[in-house]
């Protein structure tokens, strides 16, 4: 008893502050690396030539223009209505089509709902490529293919959305409890029946959530797709920017702001009811 007490006492006496976890130099190395890359990217011959000289030169004239942003030209409103409507139509249509297309694709890219390795990897690889091209580049190329208007914009948005929805939803399938799927298999269901009966109800909330998120993204994206001729507000933005009508640009920005925020409130309300 007393011998054990002595051991405990000795152990306590020799207890030291534990050594700091990890190496101390690591964070500083990372900071150093970031600083070096930043200096390189800022240098005139290697990077983007971060010179404030132009800003100083344009300040007087530019500041006036930017101040115009604070005074929207309300009389411009009637002209923006058709473009605004087209932007909304494009966003809604693209979201609906993308949602329909991505539901089966998300089931096809998750391991739990598609045990076939080859088809899964193939679909994933294609989607990875699709996701790495920005929506505006799709729009620029599609405008050349099918002509100007809302159609290339809608197709570009669909491609862009499918990449996002499928990735998020298939990740949420992987995170789900496989129990229900195993029960379906044990009851003798084939893969389609299992997915329909147990995977689908599980992923519905995350699927609706992503679809709402994509709708928000689409309103914002379709507002700029017009810059390459793909319809919507972007066409107007392109027109007012060439004339430096910043008071009109300001009204357009304000409209996008209001719609995005309204959608944000709406989707938050829906999300709260889902959870």
């Amino acid at each position: 008893m007393s011998a054990r007490g002595a051991t405990v006492a000795r152990t306590i006496a020799t207890l030291d502050i534990p050594p700091r976890p990890g190496c101390q130099w690591k964070p500083w190395c990372a900071v150093g690396l970031v600083a070096i890359i930043t200096v390189i990217t800022l240098s005139p011959q290697w990077g983007i030539d971060f010179s404030l000289e132009a800003i100083a030169r344009n300040w007087q004239n530019g500041a006036e223009k930017i101040l115009q942003l604070l005074v929207p030209d309300w009389s411009f409103f009637p002209r923006t209505v058709p473009a605004l409507l087209e932007t909304l139509q494009m966003a809604v249509i693209a979201t609906a089509v993308a949602a329909v297309v991505s539901l089966p694709l998300s089931l096809a890219t998750a391991r739990l709902t598609n045990p076939n390795g080859y088809s899964r990897r193939l679909v994933r690889a294609v989607l990875n490529v699709i996701r790495s091209i920005p929506d505006l580049l799709y729009a620029a190329i599609l405008v050349a293919m099918v002509g100007v208007g809302a159609l290339p914009g809608i197709i570009a948005l669909v491609l862009f959305n499918v990449g996002i929805i499928v990735k998020m939803v298939s990740e949420s399938i992987e995170a789900n409890d496989p129990g229900a799927l195993e029960a379906g298999r044990a009851a003798g269901g084939n893969q389609v029946q299992i997915n329909r009966a147990s995977a689908l109800p599980d992923i519905m909330p995350s699927f609706i959530n992503q679809t709402l998120y994509v709708l928000e993204l689409n309103v914002r994206a379709s507002a700029v797709l017009g810059l390459v001729g793909a319809g919507g507000l972007g066409l107007l933005i392109d027109a007012v920017r060439t004339f430096y009508r910043y008071d009109q640009l300001s009204l357009i920005i304000l409209e996008i702001l209001i719609i995005v925020m309204a959608l944000d409130l709406l989707s938050n309300a829906v999300r709260r009811r889902l959870v």
Partner: peptide
């Protein structure tokens, strides 16, 4: 809520068409 490309359009009167 504002796309980057619109931010760029808004500030380019001061900063010019540079990277």
């Amino acid at each position: 809520a504002v796309p980057e490309i619109i931010i760029a359009i808004a500030i380019l009167s001061v900063t010019g068409l540079t990277p």
